[in-house]
Nucleic acid binder design. Structure first.
Lengths: 167, 167
DNA sequence: GACTCATCCTTGAAAGTTGAACTACATCGG
DNA sequence: CCGATGTAGTTCAACTTTCAAGGATGAGTC
């Protein structure tokens, strides 16, 4: 007599495999598509564009580096390199934080804002064409719910949230 | 008198923005999560892992480079680099195509297959935990439909499908 | 104050990606 | 057979990302 397997690999069902593959294909195709669109029209990859957008919506068009990294879901290291590059373009500048000498603000220059104004319509159109124009309103709502659930489960805030005994 | 604007930028509605942001966050978090998981447990990024999976499912565990690239939705250039790296690991080998002297097959070695056997359960578990364990069956079905629609709209087969006059 | 530890951000090197240029072979039409 | 054109795959240089290490400052404790 043996015990039931503790947790033999629970493979994906055919349905799940189908969904997973569709997910991978759609997300990689869209990511590539937007990267190319923005590289062509704005001269930067999608993530960099997202940084400018975030800055443009922040008070006084500036954010602490860490806040910016959190908002974009990237590491501080990656952000450092990215901001260095955007700084070379003259679209972003750094500024010391007066209250915390370790801190830096990144702020969006007028040129950076201009790039955004010039390229945002095309980008929105690309997003719309790839996603919102193809989905029904119900599907858009469903997608929102689904993505919200998934994002919540992946917050890096607490990678061992479900393994409390390891903490 | 002016004409109605041809197509003033159709911004995203609040709802759409919310969905778009959720989509970006969820997909980037998941991608990062799986990349780290596989880098840690299998010593390669997610895309490389996907290449091994594809090979493992192909007849005689081999595919033409272009087929492999198409299946993985990546450029041939990227694939060349990837296969070079996997070859260094001893997980994949190249083989001349007898019927077309320009062609190359990539095939999965026994070691490559072993890596897959060893790491697949952990990877499936990660996918399951991030996606399928968190969604209801209805949501999984919805996600499948949605991703299918999006992927279809992004097939690189015909980037100007909606601009026939440019072809 | 001095110590310790955490946080903020940067750096450098290695790894991965991109897009264009390039080689070699195939295919098509004469 | 010839030339033109297309396809398969690689390579190079520029760029981006990752990971580990490190310098500097802040915060808590004695």
């Amino acid at each position: 007599m043996t015990m039931a397997p503790i947790d033999g690999p629970r493979w994906l069902s055919d349905e799940e495999q189908r969904v997973w593959r569709a997910y991978l294909h759609a997300t990689t195709l869209l990511e590539d598509h937007l990267d190319r669109q923005l590289q062509r029209d704005a001269g930067m990859p999608h993530i960099y564009y997202g940084l400018l957008v975030q800055l443009s919506q922040a008070p006084r068009r500036r954010l602490r580096m860490t806040e910016l990294a959190k908002g974009a879901k990237i590491t501080r290291s990656r952000l450092s390199h990215a901001v260095a590059r955007l700084e070379k373009n003259g679209w972003v500048l750094r500024e010391d934080c007066p209250s915390d000498k370790r801190g830096q603000f990144a702020y969006l220059t007028d040129e950076g804002y201009a790039v955004l104004e010039r390229t945002a319509p095309g980008h929105v159109a690309a997003v719309r064409q790839a996603m919102f124009d193809r989905l029904t309103p119900e599907q858009v709502a469903q997608l929102g719910d689904i993505m919200k659930v998934m994002a919540e489960g992946l917050q890096p805030s607490d990678p061992n949230a479900d393994l409390p005994w390891l903490r």
